[in-house]
Design a protein around this nucleic acid. Structure first.
Lengths: 110, 110
DNA sequence: AATCTATATCGTAATATTGCAATAATAAAA
DNA sequence: TTTTATTATTGCAATATTACGATATAGATT
């Protein structure tokens, strides 16, 4: 087990932030998130039409966003309605606000 | 070139957010960031003593944080003083505040 | 029931990341 | 100048990610 991340050595919060950040660590997923914010909710096919990626690739990206808790999906007929999970966005906003508030703003060095 | 990210298809901002998020997409790098915020500035060795990872591994994580613009490092004698790049933290705070503000907060579905 | 529509999953190739031992590089200290 | 201290780089093994064609799944439509 060499190239595997040692999650057990870090706090739950650090792992949580990392998981969400990782999910946003790909421009396609950022684009999906922004599109979802713009249209409020949509189905997978809409995103396939919007982005230059194949349907299985979009599906995979949606899965990762969902696993990270950034989006939700509900079955609606034979399609699935996706939308933003506000709570997680709020969590990230709070996190950055929190650490930004802790910054010294005049470092010793650098 | 199959498993390579198609950055050229996304906006500059989407790529920038993804790059920063990706750098925070590992708990060790979140831990390094939080430690740096706590102590204001430190050298690589301090982080090696703090986290359960070998020196080359820490060095690599620092490099990635630096490449993403999240930290700065300045040579100081034979060691390097690392500290937070406030601007980038602010950028992320602004980004999440911006998208949080755009949320509908009562979705059609989900 | 057969077909269409929408999405997920499988399989696989290409690429990237993670982690560390060994070693190099550089500057201070002795 | 030899040694020590600090950090970066190299090389490599293990694992993870990215992308997509082919195929499966499931609900709607005819």
């Amino acid at each position: 087990m060499m190239g595997a991340t040692k999650t057990e050595h870090f706090t739950e919060n650090q792992n949580m932030i990392a998981t969400i950040a990782k999910a946003l660590g790909h421009p396609a997923r950022v684009a999906i998130l922004e599109y979802l914010i713009k249209v409020n909710s949509c189905i997978c096919g809409d995103i396939v039409n919007e982005l230059p990626l194949a349907q299985p690739t979009i599906s995979q990206h949606l899965k990762e966003l969902k696993n990270a808790g950034l989006i939700k999906g509900t079955v609606e007929g034979n399609s699935i309605c996706y939308c933003i999970a506000e709570k997680t966005i709020d969590k990230m906003q709070d996190y950055f606000a929190h650490i930004a508030g802790k910054l010294n703003r005049k470092n010793d060095c650098c």
